[in-house]
């Protein structure tokens, strides 16, 4: 489906994508990388908006630059959060659908379906200028799926969505995948991408550093954390904390201190840390399911409200910098 062969893209003297080679068959892919890592450049190359400076690129077996009919098979939900403010979502999505090549009546029908799929039926005739960020995000998604493309590309689709919106978006993407279609999702937040269980591609400073299923990435991440922790404690020997890896989870609750106290009393944690502003509690454990179960019990018995519970991905940047070092042969 997507084939990169030593693709490099320069913007003048700036390197956007550096010698990327990959071959992706249909399925779900999560492109992960810090801001400025080249994710959008990669997407622009896939959608034929940019031409590789060096290397060869094929999408569905064709060069996307200049083969515009091929674009009919792709839907793109870009990261930019700017839309025409003085038209309604229906008018805009309908126009975008007509540009694909559908006639007037079919475009209207598809627009209607796409907007109702993303939950915009009630607001679709209101001007976009009055929409919330989440509504604009859903409208963007509607224009990308209205023509039911084989490959749906999403650049930071969870930006600006509240937890419910994120959940709905995840559900929507899962359903889309269920229809034998492919998804290529770019984000800088691991746990968001993980939800749809894609194969992960790690990109940093324009280079593709690693690819594989989320479990493998998590393992690298965990071993990376262990490695850094050992360095912090001045250990010089090989990193070996037993066969199980440490997973970090981040909790925001109504009483972080009480939760920490109760957790420490009943279970063995690898580490526990309170954020300086005391709003976030990070715990490291080798037995994540057990700890999650205990958190649920403690919260129920002590009437603690949990606002957020998610894997702590603060170490993602560390992972990228470590992988960069490996690439340069520094570690």
């Amino acid at each position: 489906m997507i084939e990169f062969n030593s693709v490099t893209k320069f913007y003048g003297l700036v390197n956007g994508v550096n010698d990327v080679s990959m071959s992706l068959s249909p399925g779900a892919y999560g492109l992960l990388g810090p801001n400025g890592s080249g994710k959008t450049t990669l997407i622009n190359l896939i959608t034929g908006q940019l031409r590789p400076t060096i290397g060869r690129l094929r999408i569905f077996g064709e060069d996307p630059w200049g083969k515009e009919q091929m674009l009919r098979r792709i839907g793109l939900c870009p990261a930019v959060d700017v839309l025409y403010s003085n038209v309604s979502a229906f008018e805009w999505v309908n126009y975008q659908t007509r540009l694909i090549g559908f006639d007037w009546s079919e475009a209207r029908e598809r627009t209607h379906n796409a907007l109702s799929t993303v939950g915009m039926t009630d607001a679709m005739h209101r001007k976009i200028g009055g929409y919330s960020l989440g509504m604009r995000q859903r409208t963007k998604l509607a224009q990308a799926i209205a023509h039911e493309p084989e490959l749906l590309i999403l650049d930071e689709p969870f930006n600006g969505l509240d937890p419910i919106g994120r959940q709905e978006m995840t559900e929507l993407l899962r359903n889309y995948l269920g229809k034998n279609r492919s998804i290529f999702l770019a984000s800088h937040v691991l746990h968001e991408v993980e939800e749809i269980k894609p194969a992960l591609l790690l990109l940093s400073r324009g280079r593709l550093l690693a690819e594989g299923p989320p479990e493998e990435i998590r393992e690298i991440l965990a071993s990376q954390q262990t490695h850094h922790e050992n360095l912090r404690f001045g250990e010089t020997g090989p990193v070996n904390r037993g066969k199980k890896n440490v997973a970090d989870i981040l909790i925001r609750s109504s009483d972080n201190y009480l939760l920490a106290q109760r957790l420490l009393a009943i279970t063995r944690l690898q580490r526990i840390q309170m954020s300086p502003d005391e709003t976030e509690l990070t715990i490291g454990t080798t037995d994540l399911p057990l700890v999650c179960e205990q958190i649920t019990r403690i919260c129920a018995s002590e009437s603690i409200q949990v606002f957020e519970l998610r894997p702590a991905d603060g170490s993602l940047d560390e992972l990228f910098s470590s992988l960069m070092k490996i690439h340069r042969g520094e570690s």
């Binding site: 908006q49 674009l71 870009p78 700017v82």
Partner: peptide, 16 residues
């Protein structure tokens, strides 16, 4: 306005 992307990813979108 950064809306060019939406037009550019349609078949013959830039031209039309």
């Amino acid at each position: 306005a950064k809306t060019w992307t939406y037009l550019a990813i349609r078949p013959h979108g830039k031209l039309s």
